[in-house]
Design a protein around this nucleic acid. Structure first.
Lengths: 348, 348
DNA sequence: ACGTCCTATGAAAACGTTTACGTTCGCGCC
DNA sequence: GGCGCGAACGTAAACGTTTTCATAGGACGT
C-alpha cells in the first residue's frame, strides 16, 4: 500500500501539515523556498492527496455525472468524447451511468450518484419536471440535453432539429423536387417531434400549395423500409422523401431499390444524423449532420459554468446548429461526379 | 442543501450514530425493531450516506475506473455498455477517462484516478509492464484488455484474434478460393499482430503450398483502398482478400469496384470486427464478429473478483471467442439469395 | 523603547462515517 | 447470591484533508 499521507510529507519536510496543504494548493501564505522544499518532498514521496478526505471537507468532488439512455454507436461515443475532453481540460472527472431505458432505472442511477458528483449531465427520454423534482437533490447543478423540459430551473441544451429539418426540406425543394414526403419518428421522442415540426414549417414556407405527406416510423431501419413501401403505394408518388433519421432513410432506400427505382433519378431521399453508415450506402445518403462532440463539450462547459458560480447563473436554453451534408441521394449533384469521401482516421 | 447526516437520523430515532450505522449496514448487533425504526426514520429524512466520508474510513470507493484510448463508434459504446451493465449489477460506479492517444495523456489520467477507484480497467495501445509499474499504484487491482502484456501481475483479457483470423482464412479457402491475400494492420497494434499471426497459421495449416501474400495497411479505409490497388497490380491477382479490419476491407472493396471487378465473383473479400457499416456496403461484407459487450462485461467481472478477494486470486489470462459472419463478399453463398438483415433495434 | 501590523507557521477543529472498545443489563448456572 | 456471558447499545477514536485561529517574531513608525 502506498498510504503516504500529508503527515508523512510534513514530517519529512519538517513542517506542519497545514503548511504542506498550503504549499500544495497555490502556496499563498507560505514562504517561497519552504513551499519549494515541500513540493520536492511531496513529489519524491509520490504523495497524492486522498480524494475522499479532500471531498469530505471541501464539499467538492471534482466529478460530474452523466446519465444516459441506451445509446447507439457513434452518437454515444462522440457524446462521451466531447464531454470527456472538456471535463479533462477542467480537471473534472466523469462518472458515467448509461443504458437506462426505464424510468425506475434512471431514477435509481440518479440517486446512486448522490454525493459523488458536483453536477449532472442528463440525457434521457423520460426526464420531465416531475422526475427531476423527485430524484434530483435540489441545488445540484444539472444540464439537460435534448430535452423537452422548459423549466426555468435547469439549463437545457438542444440540437436545432427544427432548423436542420427545415433547411433540408428547403434544399430538396430547391433541387427541383416538387413534392417532399416525410417519414416521422416515434411521437414520444423529442428529436422526432422537432424534426416533424421543421418539415411542416419548411413546407408551409417554401411550398405552401403542396400538401403535407407524413408517414409514421419509429427510427428503426425496418420502420423506414415499411414507410418506403407505403410511400410507393401512394397514388401520387412523392418526388423526394425526407426521413427523420438516417436509419429509416436507409431502410427506405432498400425499399426503393427493391422496387427497381433509381435514387435519386426517380425519387430523392435524405436522412438526419449523419451516422457513419450514411456515406457507405449506395448511393450515398444526403443528410443533416449534428456535431455531437460539440453537444457534449458545450454541455459540460455550461455545467462547469454553473459550478463556478452557483449564485444566480440563470438557467438558460441553448441550441446547437446543424449542417446539411449533400451526397448522392438528394439529387442535387447529378451532374457532378461525387468524390467518395475517404476518411483516413478511425483506426478501429 | 440536503445536508442530512447520520447524526440527524440518530437524534430523530433517539439512538446513537453507531446504531444507525449498524442498522443501515446489514443490521447485525442491533435489535430487530430498533433497526426497523431507524430505517424508517432514515428514509423519511431522505438520508443518503456521504460517500466520501464512508470512503475515507472504509478505504473503498465502490468505483472502478476505465482507461480507454480514442475509440471509435460501435466498439466504444458496446464496450462501455458491457462494463456499465456489469458494474451496475454489482453496485459499482464507473469512472471513465477516454480518448487518450499519447502515453503521457494515459499516464496522467491514470494518476488522476489515484484513490478515486478501487480498481482499473485498462485498454490502451501503450500499456506495457514498465508503464504500469510507473503509473499504477501497486496493489491497485487492474484488468488489461486486449493487451500484449504477459505479466504474472495483471489479469489480461483478450479477443481471440488468432482463432478468428484463422477461421476466416479457413472459410475462404474452404469456399474454393485457392489463394488468399492479407491486408495487415499497423505493426504496433496488438490486434493487428494477432490477426496477422492467425492468417499465417491458417495458411500454413490449410494451404501449405500457397505462398503468403501480405500487403500493409494501418486500419484506415484509405490504406485499405491503397492495398486493394496494390493487390490488383500483382501479376497473379489473389482469389480472395482478407483485411485485418472492416474499414480496410471497405476501402479495398471500393478499389475493386473502381477497377470494374465483381465481388465476390472475380475476387472475394472479408474483414474483421463486424462494424455496423459491414452489412450496409454493397455487396455486404463478410467478417469476423467480436462480442464487444461480452468483453466489457467479463472484464468487469474479473476485476470484481479481484476486488472481492485480493488474497491470491492469481492473475490470469482469458480469451474471448469470435464468430464468422458470412455475408456476400466472401462468395460462400453465391447460390442462395442472402436476405438483407434488418435490425429493428437501435433508435438512434 | 514600545506598540502595531504583517508574514510565516503551527495547533487543532471540523467534515461524516465506521468500528473497536466499554458499559449496562438480563439470564442462566453453579 | 455470585459469576460469567452475550446481546444491545453508546462513546470515542480514527480516516486525511482544509481552514480557522493563535502565536511568534520581525519590520516599522513614532
Amino acid at each position: 500500500m502506498a498510504a503516504v499521507t500529508i503527515k508523512d510529507v510534513a514530517r519529512e519536510a519538517k513542517v506542519s501539515v497545514a503548511s504542506v496543504s498550503r504549499a500544495l494548493n497555490g502556496g499563498v501564505g507560505v514562504n517561497a523556498d519552504t513551499s519549494q522544499r515541500i513540493r520536492e518532498v511531496a513529489s519524491r514521496l509520490r504523495y497524492v492527496p486522498h480524494a475522499a478526505a479532500r471531498t469530505l471537507i471541501t464539499r467538492r468532488t471534482n466529478t460530474i455525472g452523466a446519465l444516459l439512455p441506451d445509446l447507439y454507436g457513434e452518437f454515444f461515443s462522440e457524446l462521451i468524447r466531447g464531454i470527456d475532453l472538456a471535463a479533462r481540460a477542467r480537471g473534472l472527472h466523469l462518472l458515467v451511468s448509461s443504458s437506462h431505458d426505464s424510468v425506475e432505472d434512471a431514477a435509481a442511477a440518479l440517486r446512486a450518484m448522490q454525493g459523488r458528483v458536483d453536477g449532472m449531465l442528463i440525457l434521457s427520454a423520460h426526464v420531465n419536471a416531475a422526475f427531476l423534482h423527485d430524484n434530483l437533490p435540489e441545488a445540484l447543478p444539472a444540464v439537460l440535453l435534448n430535452s423537452a423540459v422548459k423549466s426555468t430551473d435547469y439549463t437545457v441544451l438542444n440540437i436545432d432539429n427544427v432548423a436542420g429539418a427545415c433547411a433540408m426540406v428547403r434544399h430538396l425543394l430547391g433541387a427541383g423536387h416538387a413534392t417532399v414526403a416525410f417519414i416521422a419518428g416515434p411521437a414520444s421522442n423529442f428529436d422526432a417531434q422537432q424534426r416533424d415540426k421543421g418539415y411542416r414549417a419548411a413546407m408551409k414556407k417554401y411550398a405552401p400549395h403542396v400538401p403535407l405527406n407524413v408517414v409514421s416510423g419509429d427510427f428503426s431501419e425496418e420502420s423506414g423500409y415499411r414507410a418506403g413501401r407505403q410511400l410507393l403505394a401512394q397514388k401520387l408518388r412523392p418526388r423526394a422523401v425526407f426521413a427523420a433519421n438516417d436509419m429509416m432513410a436507409v431502410g427506405c432506400l432498400y425499399a426503393f431499390k427493391e422496387a427497381g427505382l433509381d435514387v435519386p433519378q426517380d425519387i430523392a431521399l435524405a436522412g438526419f444524423d449523419d451516422i457513419p453508415i450514411a456515406r457507405y450506402v449506395t448511393p450515398s445518403l444526403s443528410t443533416v449532420r449534428v456535431r455531437i462532440v460539440d453537444l457534449g463539450r458545450s454541455a459540460l462547459e455550461r455545467l462547469a459554468e454553473l459550478l463556478e458560480k452557483p449564485d444566480h447563473v440563470t438557467a438558460s436554453a441553448h441550441t446547437l446548429g446543424c449542417e446539411i451534408v449533400v451526397r448522392d441521394t438528394c439529387g442535387a449533384n447529378l451532374n457532378t461526379v461525387s468524390p467518395r469521401n475517404i476518411r483516413s482516421s478511425g483506426n478501429r
